[in-house]
Amino acid sequence: MMRKIKLTRANKSILLKSLAPYYYRERALGHSTQESGRLILKINSLPADKRASFSTDEIRLMRTAINQLRNERLAKGQYTDAADDMLLKLF
């Protein structure tokens, strides 16, 4: 099943900032990084301010990565509104 999400410049930036550490964390743990690597390339190549289709697996991965970024920022007492907004778009 595919779902369309509008990717603004801010949303693209948040997704890429959250997926990169997720990718390297999974790689360091010896887990497969194909799915996250492909998703990073896909998001990077998409134009901003357009609607893009994502599979349920891709959305699940984005939610996981953004939630990890959000939790890391909360633990440090940092601002999380942008990550929270992106998570709401994915639900």
Rank of each mutant, 00 (worst) to 15 (best):
I40A: 07
L46C: 07
G37N: 08
E26T: 06
Q34C: 07
Q78G: 07
N11Q: 10
L39G: 02
I43A: 04
R27Y: 14
I40E: 09
R70M: 10
L15Q: 00
Y79C: 02
I14A: 06
L29K: 15
M62C: 12
T56K: 08
R9E: 12
S36Y: 12
N11L: 15
A48L: 03
A20Q: 03
D84P: 06
I59V: 14
I66H: 04
L87A: 02
H31W: 13
L16S: 01
A75C: 00
A28C: 01
L41I: 06
G77V: 02
R3I: 15
L90R: 02
A52P: 01
L88C: 05
A83R: 02
Q68I: 10
L16R: 00
S32Q: 05
L61M: 10
M1Q: 05
K12A: 08
A82E: 09
I59G: 05
K89T: 04
T64N: 08
L69C: 06
I59T: 06
F54I: 05
R27I: 05
S53E: 14
L90M: 03
A20K: 06
T56Y: 08
N67A: 09
I40F: 14
A82D: 08
T56S: 13
R25G: 00
F91I: 01
Y23Q: 04
F54Y: 06
L16E: 01
D84G: 03
P47C: 03
E58H: 05
Y24L: 13
S55P: 13
